[in-house]
Design a protein around this nucleic acid. Sequence first.
RNA 1: GCCGAGGUGGCGGAAUCGGUAGACGCGCUAGCUUCAGGAGCUAGUGUCCGCAAGGGCGUAUGGGUUCAAAUCCCUUCCUCGGUACCA
Length: 849
Amino acid sequence: MTETTESRTRTERYDPASIEPRWQARWAELGLYETDLSDESRPKYYLLTMYPYPSGDLHIGHWYIVTPSDALARFRRMHGYNVFFPIGFDAFGLPAENAAIRNGGHPFTWTMSNIETMRRQFRTMGATFAWNAEVVTADPTYYRWNQWLFLRFLEAGLAYRALSTVDWCPNDGTLAREQVEGADRHCWRCGALVEKRDLEQWFLRTTRYADELLDFSGIDWPEPVKVMQSNWIGRSDGAEIEFEVAPDGHQPGGDRLRVFTTRPDTLFGATFMVLAPEHPLVARLTHPERQAEVEAYVEQARRRTEIDRLSTEREKTGIALGSDAINPVNGERIPIFVADYVLAGYGTGAIMAVPAHDERDFAFARKFGLQVRRVVAAPGLDAQAPLDSAYIAHASDERLVNSGRYDGMPADEGGKAMVAWLAETGRAEPKVTYRLRDWLISRQRYWGTPIPVIYCERDGIVPVPDDQLPVLLPETVDYAGSGDNPLNHDAAFLDVVCPRCGLPARRETDTMDTFVDSSWYWYRYLSPHKADGPVDRAMADRWTPVDQYTGGAEHAVMHLLYSRFFIKAMADSGLIRDREPFKRLFNQGQILGADGERMSKSRGNVQDPDELVRRYGADTVRLFLMFMGPWDQGGPWSPTGIGGVHRFLNRVWTLALDPHGREPGDPDAGSLPAGQSAADARSAARSAAHRTLRDVSADYEAFHFNTMIAKLMELANTLFRYRGTEIAGAPEWDEAIRLLLLMLAPAAPHISEELWSRHLSAAGEPWSSIHTQAWPEVDPIAVVDATREIPVQVNGKLRDRVTVAADATNAEIEAAVLARERIASILAGRTPDRIVVAGGGRLVNLVVR
RNA sequence: GCCGAGGUGGCGGAAUCGGUAGACGCGCUAGCUUCAGGAGCUAGUGUCCGCAAGGGCGUAUGGGUUCAAAUCCCUUCCUCGGUACCA
């Protein structure tokens, strides 16, 4: 027997290159992963991974995203679920267009060739995607339904047109943020300085759902994402208050300035006002001698980014307009400023400034020497004492001071009273505002879904009738070396007749934000070829919401919030049942280049997975990506250590195929550990396997793939020590090997399938794929310990360990500890002041003086 | 700036209902073995003192709570993601 196994090891090395393609072909042949969506005999499990953008930078990051998801799909199948694990491609977007502008060619060609490469890579990694459900968003059979949904939203009053500012290059038109470069903000392509321009654009009314979007009940999402979305929506409860402009020598006064404040209680402390540079009354309230200065300031502010403007670190800037307003509660004249730290898009675009109680207002008042008046103070505080910083704290026992007849009132109550009083004369009202803005979906670009609208001189905005959808992108596109939207120059696309009156009209040339595509794509997976509607309602009702969604944390606010909005809007249009898209969410980390930057061709830090697969095989690469760290962490790419994972698979190979072999080099090879009987060894092997099964099952459930693999390695190491001994090949050994293969199957599907099939044939059993086996059950008897070892501390420092019966009581543990010689010598005659037996006997701490 | 996450050996990381810090792997050191390969096996490996037994120190920083802190609280520093036209 020894001879035959030795000759087998000689000829049979673990050769992934011969195993992997064979099994991939076999699985495809068996249709193992083409989900039968109508099968109701098993519980459904919709596992969704964020569909990739087919960038030109195909790299190991795509494997990192997909590998654990695929393992999870396989794991769930082994638990008896009918798993639907589809894939598609987010095929519209800027990079394809940038490539076309730079290098010529068509964005379609570029995108489709990238998709081809990605399909091939996903196949070589053994990913079990339901390819028959694939969706490519740039295909008219998909984007047609974007257009159709847009029209439904238009009917529902959820889509509207309004002015919005874009970054504008005189040569290349609208620029994305990433196309604006440098501190001087110049165009990526031509270098011209970027301007702001206001354009009529399309919005979706996300704010209609602001409150519902704040409600996360019924979905199991990571806390940080919920917090980020809540902050992004930014609900503020406060009041809108009207200030009147005071008359002076240059204007008659009487204009009304509305401000929003969350702190109406501080009204008496409002010692100046600030308007956003874009505020419509700025020009009118500016005194003639200040006009030039103010205009220059407004122009300069418009060039700044919002991030820059909101920085509390940057020194405050601003200019007094020369006009005053009247504080409605005390009749004081207060100066009006324009400053860029006030944004036109939030609240009313104007604020009452209360420097005593707002950090930004305080900084501004400091710089411009404005009055700071404290109006809220804790009892007993000197209300007149000067402040050296804004006083923000808002404790419940604070009282109003310097606030006329409201003095002494609790701050909250006083604020409400002031609003109620002003409301009597229509000068205030309670108000809720949100930081969330409506979703600007217009893009002045070619490579996206055309917005299905026609402009007619007579009929105005006319929706394209449903039966004329899709509005197709023209097949030929001429960028003419410019970044400007080529649709603007395409007469065949532009010139249409009005569907209402038949007169010549012009087609909308804006296309949709690609986040529209990604806001409902998983519904389309359920019926990708359906020709008479976007969603198969019966399928959707059966399969949604998605049970588990996985994707990068960089999508925490935008994609994941837009999707929630979209599904609510679709539900309200009667198209679907659910109001939430994803029941559970997991955010995986991102693989960066070795330099710690995002992987991209231009940075030259892209790791090609093909090269690693050629060298080690797909299973090793899959395992390594799962092993390198927690999945939610990501981090810089380094192949250091991939050899260790490969070695592990080699050991599994050897264990399964050559249990009786002995390694030269080990002095103890072939003999059981000292003092261990064969019976002990058999039960130790079995116990190790079942403990591993218990822990590995929990790790899969918790997405702890790195520790899951570490535990499989430990089990393999344990079994390896028994290789060549008398227990190798015993029933317990065989059971352990089978468990090891089953546990490994979701993560390393090819090698486990290969070894499984050999194990079955060696045992004379008929073949059936390891991936259709049931996940094994832990034998509770096998994992029980007779004794346990307890660490003993003296004054918190580890000094000894004591072994007690597994069911020892605290008193028995104490007695065992005090009986230890080592402990006695450390105590040196002292009696412990206290003996802590912690955590149900997990640890003992003796406290001495 | 703001919102969110994170910082542990030479390296990736493990341990977070407060209870043995460093599992597993890489690298390194020594030995063995050999089908001499980009092999395999065994043992050791946080750091300092020590022949050893053993002890001191140690989880970005400084403080606090506790019998006990990588874990909880406060301070500071650094890194990453998002910041509404990258996806």
